[in-house]
Each structure stands twice: as C-alpha cells, then as structure tokens.
C-alpha cells in the first residue's frame, strides 16, 4: 500500500493520478451519504408517534449506516488523494469497445426488464439471446437456431418439470 511520491513519478503508466477511482468513489459516496442522511431519511422513513426507547426508532439503523458511509467515504477520498492506487492490467481490454456491442447488451437488458410479460419468457429469451449473439458478432446460423431452441427448452423445463409458471406473453395470448 505504502508507495512513496518517488515511485509514482517513476511509474506513471501503472498508477492513477489524483483523479483516481478511490477519490471519485469516495466523493460520490460522500455526496450520496449526505443526500441519504438529510433528504431521504427525513422524507422516506416515518417514525411512529410513540416509542418505548430511542434505539427502537425505524431511523436508527439507517442513520448509523448512513453516517458510517459518510465517514468511510471521506477516509477513502483522502487516502485516494494521498496515495493513488495502481492501475489494473485488464483496463486495456476496455479501450475502443464498439458502441454497437454495448448498445446491443443494453437492448437485451431492456427487453428483459420491460417486455418480459408482454413478450413472454420464450419471446424475450429468444430476442435477447439473438441480440447478445449479434453483439459478439457470431455468424454461424446454427448458433442462432440455438438462440431459438434454448429459451423454449428452458421455459418448458421450468413450467412442466419444475412446476414453476413463467409468463406466456400477453402479445401472443391475444392471438389464440
């Protein structure tokens, strides 16, 4: 952990500068903790009119946690300023990732998060799998057949073997 200023100057590529993840995360949590303590707790946690003991308050634990985060994030921020952390080697893989690849992943997430009931388990599963296969640039058509087959298989497994109902899809239901 303890790295002298000298070392930082010697190896600038392997270390972050003053604006490093620790300072950013520390600052972000510091602000979030302030918002939590002074806006969210008073407005979104209601206290009962009568309590036997102050420690019984519904606000007690959230306040303790909130203050702890506030103090700890300050510590993190200060330590980040004093001793910038090392860079991780994996970062290189992250440069220049195509927007389409990331966009298709987000699209798959949106399909699951917002259209699961409309499209049904099978429909959204097929669509999301196709989107994610496209994101990786898979060209083999057989693989896309897999994208169609797997959700069907898994859905049937859930519904009939495990007795766990999954939605059939409101869109298609209207047609039958």
């Amino acid at each position: 952990m303890a790295i002298s200023e000298n070392q930082i100057a010697d190896a600038p590529a392997t270390h972050y500068g003053r604006l490093n993840p620790n300072t950013i995360v520390g600052a972000a949590f510091f602000i979030l903790a302030l918002v939590f303590l002074y806006y969210i707790i008073p407005n979104y946690i209601s206290s009962p009119p009568f309590m036997q003991h102050p420690l019984l308050s519904p606000k007690f634990l959230p306040q303790v946690a909130g203050w702890s985060v506030l103090v700890l994030s300050l510590v993190l921020m200060v330590s980040g300023l004093r001793v910038p952390p090392e860079r991780e080697p994996g970062d290189e893989l992250r440069r220049g990732v195509s927007v389409i690849r990331q966009g298709l992943m987000v699209a798959a997430g949106v399909v699951y998060a917002f259209f699961f009931e409309q499209l049904g388990a099978i429909g959204s599963g097929v669509l999301a799998c196709v989107l994610l296969f496209l994101a990786s640039g898979l060209r083999n058509p057989l693989i896309y057949l897999l994208a169609a087959a797997f959700p069907v298989l898994v859905t049937l497994l859930f519904i009939y073997l495990l007795n766990v109902p999954l939605p059939a899809g409101e869109l298609w239901e209207a047609w039958f």
Partner: peptide, 25 residues
C-alpha cells in the same frame, strides 16, 4: 459468447420465478 446469453436467461427466469414478479427482474 454463447454461454453468457444463456446464463443471463437462466438468471432472468430464476429471478422472475421467486415471486412471479417482473419487478424482481
């Protein structure tokens, strides 16, 4: 490239099945 989309699908189905709720997804 093939595994992760399928893992994600299992996760989604599983999360839904706990309470039969899309909110959980």
């Amino acid at each position: 490239t093939i595994l992760l989309p399928i893992v994600l699908m299992f996760c989604i189905y599983g999360a839904y099945a706990v309470n039969n709720s899309t909110f959980d997804i």
